[in-house]
Computed example of a mutant assay.
Amino acid sequence: MTLNPTDPVTLTQALIRCESVTPDEGGALTLLQNVLEPAGFTCHRLVFSEPGTPDVDNLYARLGSGRPHLSFAGHTDVVPVGDEKVWTVPPFSGDIRDGKVYGRGAVDMKGCVAAFVSAALKYIHHHNGLPRGSLSFLITGDEEGPSINGTMKILDWLKSRDEVVDACLVGEPSNPKALGDEIRIGRRGSVNAEIVVHGKQGHSAYPQLADNPVPKLARLIDRLSTAKLDDGTPDFQPSNLQVTVISVPNTATNVIPGQAVAKINIRYNDLWHRPTIEAWVRDKLAHAAAEVGAKYEVSFSGTGDVFLTKPGPLVSTLTDAVQSVTGRIPKLTTGGGTSDARFIKDICPVVEFGLVNATIHQVDEHTSIVDLEQLTEIYGRFITNYFRTE
């Protein structure tokens, strides 16, 4: 296959054929670098490390030095394919069947990366360069993994160089059914908590000689999971808490365990921030523990707080581009999980728009050629109008 980087279909196929399962780069970033450098982009390969996590290769490519500075953020790492035998096409083939491109990452999010690269190169070729401002790509290999050695550290690196980004588009697949359905303008925050209730191990026939932590943990979980966080806000759905793991360090049925552990995940809206949501959990636990005499510890983990990009020039520029190509007026939403936009929101306004997300992380992940081509056109109009109006 001859690679034409202004054709989003062949570029998507080429990226899919790079087996870049987190944290392996798989050749995907090298492919993008080889495409962007001939167009004038200055490329930096940034490998970041952290104890206890795998090293991650990232790419930052920039054309121009002035403002406004528009950046596209995305990732080339993908989740594992699972059982290859149940795929109807090889997961890293990039095969085309019935007008659809198949393969792991076709939607999440190599197709989106390919579409923006194609749109950017067409814009640059048409204008014989970048007429004004700067255009950059912030591509990580760590979005599907711990998200420690990726976007967060690229942003720190940019700050150390005094590079300012004025606006960012994240190419996450944002549309539930059809291209043009939704633009993501925010995300709920996410925080994990681990609760450890301590007891005294003993024989189940002699409970008076032990202290069973399991019923106490159950009472704490009940208090947390039945408490109402809020009713939602005009921009966000209600916050929610879910218990995800319950465990004890033994499997014997005649042994009372010495401790019991629960893990919870909270998705919270803009009525909360990380410190206030943690304080809420601590308060609920303290009251419940006092009722049952539980001795416990709680710890928190997770990265990224809630954010919202209010309607304004960035949102309207993207909305107009989507409507002009698809005929749809996209809904402005804040649903879904998390993305690297949760880090980028700290440096500039950020929005998300990409392909239809119906098959992400699934067997036979795929996107239609029509959607790829339309997304490229949307991105092209967005780039044109951003540099025209900002």
Rank of each mutant, 00 (worst) to 15 (best):
G189N: 02
V191C: 04
A193M: 14
A193W: 03
I195R: 02
V196S: 01
V197R: 05
V197G: 01
V197W: 06
V197C: 00
G199W: 08
G199L: 07
K200I: 13
Q201Y: 02
S204E: 09
S204C: 12
A205S: 15
Y206L: 13
Q208R: 08
L209H: 13
D211Q: 06
D211E: 07
P213L: 02
P213K: 00
P213T: 01
V214K: 02
P215D: 00
P215V: 03
K216N: 05
K216R: 13
K216T: 03
A218I: 10
A218L: 13
A218N: 07
A218V: 11
R219E: 13
R219W: 11
L220E: 03
I221D: 02
I221W: 11
D222A: 02
L224Y: 02
L224Q: 02
S225G: 00
T226P: 01
K228M: 04
K228S: 03
D231K: 09
G232V: 03
T233I: 14
T233K: 14
P234T: 00
Q237R: 13
Q237H: 06
N240G: 00
N240D: 04
Q242S: 08
V245R: 14
S247A: 12
S247M: 08
V248I: 15
V248S: 07
P249Y: 09
P249C: 06
P249A: 01
N250W: 09
N250Q: 15
T253D: 14
N254V: 12
N254I: 12
N254D: 11
V255E: 13
I256N: 10
P257Y: 12
P257Q: 13
G258A: 03
Q259M: 15
A260P: 14
V261L: 15
V261W: 06
A262R: 09
A262L: 12
I264H: 07
I266A: 04
D270P: 13
L271P: 05
L271M: 14
L271S: 15
L271G: 10
H273D: 15
H273C: 14
R274M: 14
P275R: 04
P275K: 04
P275W: 08
I277R: 12
A279P: 06
W280T: 00
W280Q: 03
V281P: 08
R282Y: 00
R282D: 00
D283F: 03
K284E: 09
K284F: 02
L285I: 10
L285M: 08
L285D: 04
A286P: 04
A286W: 06
A286Y: 03
A286V: 01
H287N: 08
A288K: 10
A288T: 05
A288H: 10
A289C: 07
E291D: 14
E291W: 02
V292I: 10
G293R: 05
A294E: 08
A294W: 12
K295I: 13
K295M: 11
Y296S: 02
Y296M: 09
Y296Q: 10
Y296R: 09
E297F: 10
V298E: 06
S299A: 12
S299L: 10
S299F: 07
F300E: 04
F300V: 06
S301K: 04
S301C: 04
G302H: 04
T303V: 09
G304M: 08
G304L: 07
G304I: 08
D305S: 01
F307Y: 15
F307T: 10
F307M: 11
L308S: 07
L308G: 06
P311G: 02
G312E: 13
